[in-house]
Simulated scan of single mutants.
Amino acid sequence: MIDIVNQINATQREIGNQAVTGGPGRSVLLRRSYDAPVEDVWHACTDPERLGRWLGVVEGNLRVGGRFQLKENAGGEILRCEEPRLLKVTWLFGEGMPTEVEVRLSPGEDGRTLFELEHASPAQIVDELVNTYGPGGTIGIGVGWDLALLGLDLFLRDVEFDPASWQHTPEARDFATRGCHAWGRAVQVAWGTSDDDVATAVAFATQHFVPETDSAG
């Protein structure tokens, strides 16, 4: 069993205005600490074999300027790779304007690692999304990364975990639902959104981004 409440509370969530290449942007920022040294976390995030065990199978020319593709997920270009502290890539799922993901690592107390992941999108994309669907769409972006950070924690602690099979279980639904509420609070802090609008956004995000539960789950 996964301690869902502890995992949700382990991550700090923020909504920001991180610029992207070519102009202004909006971002979701996730920050948490891992009980592993920086070098270990770095290799878990950059070594193809290790990535495949918690995030997804990755292929491509894995160097600065090269392109990568996560199986059945996003792909993009590697913009920066400064071992063991900084990784920045473009992030594109399907057609549309590319977004940017930056992972930042720094040493923490007692040999731990402070991990930050910031996913920035062109302001035009986010503003159109919010105008159409409200802040619930932004919440959905954050919830997707919550699962990735959970997978990384379990991998670093050598806990057996298969995201593909887990994501349709009642436990996964609980995790994603709590994540939607946590991102709702981050939206309210960043944008001063009213309680009623936050509740509407969380309901939208839960409806669209919380996985269905398998009957056998």
Rank of each mutant, 00 (worst) to 15 (best):
N6S: 14
N6A: 15
I8H: 04
A10T: 03
T11Y: 01
Q12L: 11
V20H: 02
T21P: 00
P24E: 13
R26I: 02
S27V: 01
L29H: 03
L30H: 15
L30A: 09
P37M: 07
V41G: 00
W42S: 11
W42T: 06
W42L: 11
T46F: 11
V57K: 15
L62C: 12
G66S: 08
G76W: 02
G76V: 08
R80C: 07
R80M: 13
V89T: 15
T90K: 03
W91H: 06
G94V: 06
M97H: 09
T99W: 09
S106V: 11
P107C: 06
D110Y: 14
T113M: 04
L114T: 11
L117S: 08
V126Y: 09
E128K: 00
Y133T: 00
P135Q: 10
G136C: 03
G136W: 00
G142C: 10
W145Y: 14
W145L: 07
D146N: 10
L154M: 05
L154F: 03
F155Y: 15
E160G: 12
D162E: 13
W166Y: 12
E171M: 14
E171Y: 12
R173M: 09
F175M: 01
A182E: 08
W183C: 07
R185G: 08
A186G: 08
V187M: 12
V187T: 02
A190C: 12
S194W: 14
V198S: 02
V198E: 05
A201T: 01
V202C: 10
A203F: 07
F209H: 14
V210P: 11
P211T: 05
T213M: 05
A216H: 14
